[in-house]
């Protein structure tokens, strides 16, 4: 009994530093931010209060409200496209590429991870511009009569995002695929299933955890990102993070920035709740 108690005390001692860190630098700041979101700006003075004025404004002011929808739309499109592109890629690397080249192919597929994140968006801006490589090539090959505008539109933001998240999802789905025993596929084939049926009815469902984990990560990272829409979107519409940074950088309106952040947090939490049953965050 006393040994067990001692064990527990020692266990608790080991966990304590990490818990305290999380408490002090995550939970408390977050609480402070929620408090701040209830304050408001009077002139240039932050007045602490307990009103929901900022939240009311977020849902009544068309520009702020639209930010939520812009963010959700972009994130949804990015998540779906990325999954659709990444799954076949992961599957091809895991099953079609000869075993000795597999890690090499995977490494190549995620190579741009190691460019600086800020630079990655910037290089898309160079690629997608009217004088950029893509337009030059398309016009040069006669596929387009004249350049079309991609840069400084939502499409540019989406392309920049999809590029990053295809890499991320390829990784999560690949690691899920190679853990599957080939026996499943063989068994299904023996029972007379066609190749497509095997993929659709056997392999696809089995990779759902990998897909969902990756999709959730995509959702969280995408909806919270400031750099990509800021560099590629041409300021023609503003996402939630851009609105938050606008409140901070231009107006010093901490209360409104906090309220928008709380809204962002709620959205992510809802997304988490929606796919929680497929997620094993502890095993990422």
């Amino acid at each position: 009994m006393s040994i067990e108690k001692q064990e527990k005390r020692q266990g608790a001692t080991l966990v304590a530093p990490a818990l305290l860190w999380t408490l002090g630098f995550f939970v408390i700041p977050f609480a402070a931010m929620v408090m701040m979101s209830l304050a408001h700006l009077e002139g240039r003075e932050i007045v602490q209060g307990h009103d929901l004025g900022n939240y009311l404004r977020i849902f009544t002011d068309p520009s702020l409200r639209r930010g939520i929808f812009v963010s959700l739309e972009i994130t949804a499109v990015v998540t779906v496209i990325s999954v659709l592109l990444a799954w076949p890629l992961a599957w091809i690397i895991a099953t079609r590429v000869p075993a000795r080249w597999r890690r090499m192919a995977l490494l190549l597929a995620v190579l741009p991870f190691w460019t600086s994140y800020v630079v990655r968006s910037y290089s898309w801006a160079l690629v997608l511009g009217e004088k950029g490589v893509v337009m030059n090539a398309l016009v040069g090959l006669g596929l387009l009569a004249e350049p079309v505008q991609i840069m400084a539109t939502r499409s540019a933001t989406i392309i920049g995002f999809v590029h990053f998240f295809v890499m991320l999802l390829t990784l999560t789905i690949y690691s899920n695929l190679i853990q599957l025993s080939p026996n499943y596929a063989r068994a299904a084939e023996d029972l007379g299933a066609s190749k497509w049926q095997v993929i659709r009815l056997v392999i696809l469902p089995l990779t759902l955890p990998g897909v969902m984990t990756g999709a959730f990560l995509t959702f969280v990272l995408c909806i919270g990102d400031y750099i990509t829409p800021q560099i590629l979107g041409g300021n023609n519409e503003l996402t939630l993070p851009q609105l938050i940074m606008l409140q901070l950088g231009r107006r010093g309106d901490f209360p409104m920035a906090s309220a928008l952040s709380v809204v962002l947090m709620v959205i992510v939490t809802l997304a988490y709740a929606a796919c929680a049953r497929w997620l094993k965050m502890e095993r990422v």
Partner: peptide, 10 residues
């Protein structure tokens, strides 16, 4: 600034 934000967002 509100006017400017409206412009950006539309």
């Amino acid at each position: 600034q509100d006017l400017w934000t409206d412009m950006l967002q539309n």
